[in-house]
Structure formats: structure tokens, C-alpha cells
Design a protein around this nucleic acid. Structure first.
Lengths: 350, 350
DNA sequence: GAAGAGCGTGAGAGCGCTCTCTTGACAACT
DNA sequence: AGTTGTCAAGAGAGCGCTCTCACGCTCTTC
């Protein structure tokens, strides 16, 4: 809480000094700096010259104090471990957010609550209004944070569809459609017994991907079979375990749709060990198009998500909300792309 | 530049109100909030009660205005693309930084300059003193940013050893030692013709790893051979190209030290295509211990870096600098760990 | 017992900015 | 000529906080 202050800080150039040099009042300099139209061209130029000459930069704290705006938004990443360290989702997302905000000269405050105490602090920080808005990256559906922040009237955008749509704006990718396309691709390749390795049921993305899998299976007139639906935790080991289980209960399977590349990689290792060839005997498709997909042997067909775009879109929507708090919640769904590689090559029809 | 303000912002509880409720002056409340020892126990308690009751949270802008401290530090990531998206380096690093700072209630402002204009803006932002300090993640040695910021007296810590040690504090991993250990491990496994696939020469980490490779080779009394030293760009394709080249010029090689896992993966694919078995014919070691290493077939021996720790250390050093600007630059080198997997299994001595 | 030291508390200035209100100049009406 | 409107520019208050200084009290010390 305490801000330890020991060293004196250099003081910058103030409006006052610029005003003196330009021979105008503080208010006029402020108008010029903030782009008000109510300044004559002549005065504007002389102020601009003075600003340039003195290297004036507005003091954000002073400005914030009166405008009640911080000029910053928070990105809150509440991922215990998992995906945070497995694929470059977060850097890409942050890059997207950053790109969308730099044009508006708004800063990105990154919050990565780790412990429970952190989590409380994060919520307090946001609710205290230290930022103008927040982007919550909430991959688990049951996150209580959004509720608290929305209740505190802080403009908020969630990345990833929330479990319950509590009137909050969100940006998500079309997980269901992406999964469906992937499975349709397997079907088009002549596969008929297609298993799914899904993610944890508390994650909305996992549910949506499973739903997409079912869509495609049902629509193709194949038998929906719970025995073909395994669940794991998005990790490689989890994928391997799920694959072993699937081979035991449905040895006749000829394709696997895995809801993450890592799980696909684990599954491929098990298939390999079991003497099943990929893609000849079993085709496989992953999800995320992470570096692992390109590196795998054979290279893994995977569903690519427009991650940077998601970040940009989230930032855009948030800035709209910040500018106009009464705006209705927005829902943005971005489409995915299937990246075809060798792991899902179709087999010659027998 | 302009901060568009349209909506009125809610105003929070102020010191004044707390003071009134507690029956003391503003100054006393300030002292309590900031943990000054010069307050009697009785008054302190009554102020704390009032703070609690009103849910008072200090206004950071007002505080900053007078203390000339922002209560935030910047993390600047200037990576055009490459590593940003290939392994989870940045999320881990950020997590480390975040963990070290949350205890001090200091915010992390993330800057990811993309375009050249961004880059200028970033420098301006830092130089303007909007943050109390900066952590620069500078993987390329020739980054001009540190110089400008140091010159502006902004406390700075660089992650990754800078090309020229201009008296700046930095935190790095022992790349040279890590590489050396990896190559020693290959030698201990009976390998005698060991190639290196290095990274771009403008990256200090790449140079250091190459130096470590040479250390081990020389010390073992093996012939130093420039023909065994290929250079690539840390990517998979680059690694593949380098491997093809190496096989062409030194077909007798029996081991490869790659300065990244991605390059190792590319190299492994080429070895496989060329009919060389890993590890029987050619042993291989990567670097980074990224997800790709565990996923590879065979799993890749790799050098693991303490990335979170690096972030924490960088934050710690920076906070020291912020608290005491006269402190001498610090250099922190963290050690690496060799993670042994199947790709480098030793061969039975003939 | 007077002088000084020590300590808890309050008064008040002021950090740098924005923004409302006012002024004054000039043009355009009646 | 008098009124009104328009618009550039200035004056001044005040955002919420910290911090210096002054004050008054109690406790030592010779």
C-alpha cells in the first residue's frame, strides 16, 4: 500500500512554462495540447513551437486527477498454469490488444493474479477505478471476477465466451464451427469412426468444440457414440491417457479430433506405440495451430484461431464501452481456419 | 494524445471524508494509510475503522501528482516476431515480474512496440517519466532503446545481456554455461563429431551459446572445425536448412547441438529424412525446453532456463534501483539445467 | 523549576492539469 | 447607433493527495 519515496524525482516541463514562452495562458496551451478547435491558427502555431522547444509532455497524473480517467486499461489473465505456458496464445493476444491501443495512446496494465491474495488485490484494484476498463481473459467459465467488476460499473470485455451470459460484452472465436469444420474434413477424408478428445467440461471452449464435433458427426449420419468421446485436460499426457482409453474401448476407430495440439501430440505418440500409422490407419486433427502442430511427425492438421485479431477486437470493443458507458453489450465471434497437414490426409476409398 | 472524456466518472471516497468520520485531520489519515510510525495506536485504530467502513482506496493519480512516483513500472518487449510466438518465454517472464511486483502493489505496464512509430512513442513515454522504471526485454544485442532511457535517468533493467555493457543492470541466464553443459553431455555419451546450429550473430544469447559449444569442444581436445558450425534463425525451417548443409559438408557427424528446440526439431526432421536414426546415429540436444521438446519424437534433450526466476530477479533488481537511484548497476546470471531425454542417449562404446 | 527535547497532530500550501465562467473584440443584425 | 451573437483567450477554482512547518503537550535534565 505504502509508496516508499526516497529519491527526489526530476520535475518535467509544465504547462505554465510553455504558456509563458508562448505568451499565452495555461488554458490556451491546454486547449492546443488537447486539440480543441477553439484556438486561432496563429496562437496554435506559437504554442506548438513552444511545446516542441521545451519538450513538453503532459503529466498524466495531473490530468487523471481532474479528468477522472487514467488513460489505461487492464488486461487480466487468470490462468493458473496450463495454457499460459503451452502455446503462444497470450503473447499474441497481448500483441493484438497493444496494437489497438497504442493508436489511442492508452496504456496496457497487465494483471496476472497468481495467489488468492493476488486475486483479491486485482479485483480491488479494478473496482477502485484505477483503470478505465478491463479485458478479462477468462478461459474457465466459472470465473467470478467479471461479475464483481461489471457490478462496479467498470467497462469490461471478456475474451472467451462466459459461461453465463450476464449481459457482458465478449469476443470469442467460433469454437463450435472450428471443431465442426475439422471433423467434416475427417469425414470428407473417408473416416467413419471418429473419436473426440475434449477438454475440461468447465471450460466453455471445450464444450463448444465438443458440440461442433457432435454437429458434424450427427449431420453426416454417423452414430453418436459416447464411447468415442474422451475427456482430458489439454495437456500432452492427458491426450495420451485419453488415447489409450479410446484404443481400449473403440479399437476400430479411424480418426481422432483432439481439442488441442498438445493432446493430439500425446495421442499420436500412443498411436505410434500401438502400431497404428498416422494418417494411414488413424487420421488426426488438433486445435490451436501451435508450434507443436508444425513440428509433429507427421505434421498435424489443426484449427487456427485469429488470436491477434481477437485481442484487437477486444480492445476496440472496450474502447467503445469506455467512450460510451451506455452502449449495449457486444458479442463478437471470429471465424477459424483449418490448416491442413499430413496427419489427416484422406485415405483412398477402399 | 487527447484523452476523450465524455462520461462522468464516479468519484471515490476521499481522505477528507475518512478524516471527518474518524474525527482527525487529513494529514493523520494520510499517515495511517501510508504506515507512518508517528501515529498513536488509538488514533490509528479509529482511522482504520473509518477506512474500512467507507471502503476508502487512495487515489493513485492524486498521490502520484505529489510524490512524483507513478507506482508502476514498464515491461518493454521489442521482439518483432520470432520468439514471441514460438515458445512460452514471454508469458513466463511476465508471470515472474508480476509475482515480484504484486507484493509491492506496483503495476506492470506492458509495452509492445510494433511499428517504428510505436517505438518512438514507447521511448517518449518512458523518457517522460510516466513509470518509475523499466524492464527491457532485449534479445537482440543492438537495441538502441536502453541507451536513450538510461540517459534519461530512468531506472532500467535489461533481461538478456546487452551487447555493450554500458553500465546498465541486467539479468541473464548462463547461456554459455548451458551450452557447454549440453555439449559436454554429448561428449560424455561418446560423440566425437559434434555440430552446432547457432542463432543469428546479432543476438548475444546466440553468441554465448556458440561460445559454450566451443568451450566444451576445445576442452575435450576435439578439433575445432568451422565446418561444423552452422547458423540459422532459431526457427524450425532454419534448423532444417542448417542440418541439410551440415550433412552435406560433414556427413560423418554424430551429434548436433541446436541453440533452440525449434531448430532441433527441424534438424531432426532432416536427419530422419536422410535415414539417420536419432539418437543411435546422431544425438541431438536443443535449447529452451519448450513444449516442442517434450512433444518431439524422440523426446528432445534440452537446456531449461529459469524464466520465471529471471522475471522475478529483474523486478527485484529494478525495485532496488527505483528505491535508490545511486545504486551501482547489478548483473545477475542465473544457471540453467539440462533436461535429459531420449534424443541424446549415449551409444554403447564400440 | 526553567529550559530543552521529543512526539503526536493539525493547518495549509501546492503538485500540474482541466474546465467553467468571464471578458473583450469584432461582425452582423435591427 | 444600439443590441445581439460569436468566438478567441484569460482568470481562477479545484481535483485528492503528501509534506513541511508550527503547535502544544509531556517528559527529561541540570
Amino acid at each position: 500500500m505504502a509508496v516508499t519515496s526516497t529519491q527526489p524525482r526530476p520535475r518535467g516541463v509544465t504547462l505554465e512554462e510553455v504558456a509563458r514562452l508562448a505568451g499565452v495562458s495555461r488554458a490556451t496551451v491546454s486547449r492546443v495540447v488537447n486539440g480543441s478547435p477553439r484556438v486561432s491558427g496563429e496562437v496554435r502555431r506559437s504554442v506548438e513551437t513552444a511545446v516542441e522547444k521545451l519538450g513538453y509532455v503532459p503529466n498524466r497524473a495531473a490530468r487523471s486527477l481532474v479528468t477522472r480517467r487514467s488513460g489505461s486499461i487492464a488486461v487480466v489473465i487468470t490462468e493458473p498454469t496450463g495454457r499460459l505456458f503451452s502455446d503462444p496464445f497470450f503473447p499474441r493476444l497481448l500483441r493484438g490488444v497493444s496494437a489497438a491501443m497504442s493508436a489511442r495512446d492508452i496504456q496496457l496494465v497487465l494483471l496476472m493474479p497468481d495467489t488468492l491474495a493476488d486475486s483479491r488485490r486485482t479485483a480491488d484494484y479494478l473496482v477502485a477505478g484505477h483503470v478505465d476498463g478491463a479485458i478479462l481473459v477468462s478461459l474457465h467459465g466459472d470465473d467470478p471476477l467479471p461479475g464483481r467488476i461489471i457490478a462496479a460499473q467498470i467497462p469490461t470485455v471478456v475474451v472467451g465466451r462466459p459461461l453465463r451470459d450476464g449481459g457482458v460484452s465478449y469476443v470469442d472465436v467460433d469454437n463450435r464451427g472450428g471443431a465442426r469444420t475439422a471433423v467434416e474434413h475427417l469425414i470428407a477424408g473417408g473416416r467413419r469412426v471418429i473419436a473426440s478428445i475434449g477438454g475440461p467440461a468447465d471450460m466453455v471452449a471445450a464444450r463448444d468444440r465438443l458440440a461442433g464435433y457432435r454437429d458434424a458427426v450427427t449431420e453426416a449420419g454417423l452414430a453418436a457414440d459416447p464411447g468415442l468421446e474422451a475427456v482430458a485436460d489439454f495437456t500432452q499426457d492427458g491426450g495420451a491417457g485419453a488415447m489409450e482409453h479410446l484404443l481400449a474401448v473403440r479399437p476400430e476407430l479411424d480418426a481422432v479430433f483432439a481439442a488441442s495440439d498438445l493432446m493430439a501430440a500425446g495421442a499420436m505418440a500412443v498411436l505410434h506405440a500401438a502400431g497404428r500409422r498416422v494418417p494411414e490407419d488413424v487420421a488426426i486433427v488438433g486445435y490451436d495451430d501451435s508450434p507443436v502442430a508444425a513440428t509433429a511427425r507427421p505434421p498435424l492438421t489443426s484449427v487456427r484461431q485469429p488470436i491477434e485479431e481477437m485481442g484487437q477486437e477486444a480492445a476496440r470493443v472496450l474502447l467503445e464501452l469506455v467512450d460510451d458507458a451506455d452502449r449495449a453489450p457486444r458479442r463478437v465471434i471470429l471465424t477459424t481456419e483449418l490448416i491442413r497437414r499430413a496427419s489427416s490426409a484422406g485415405r483412398p476409398t477402399p
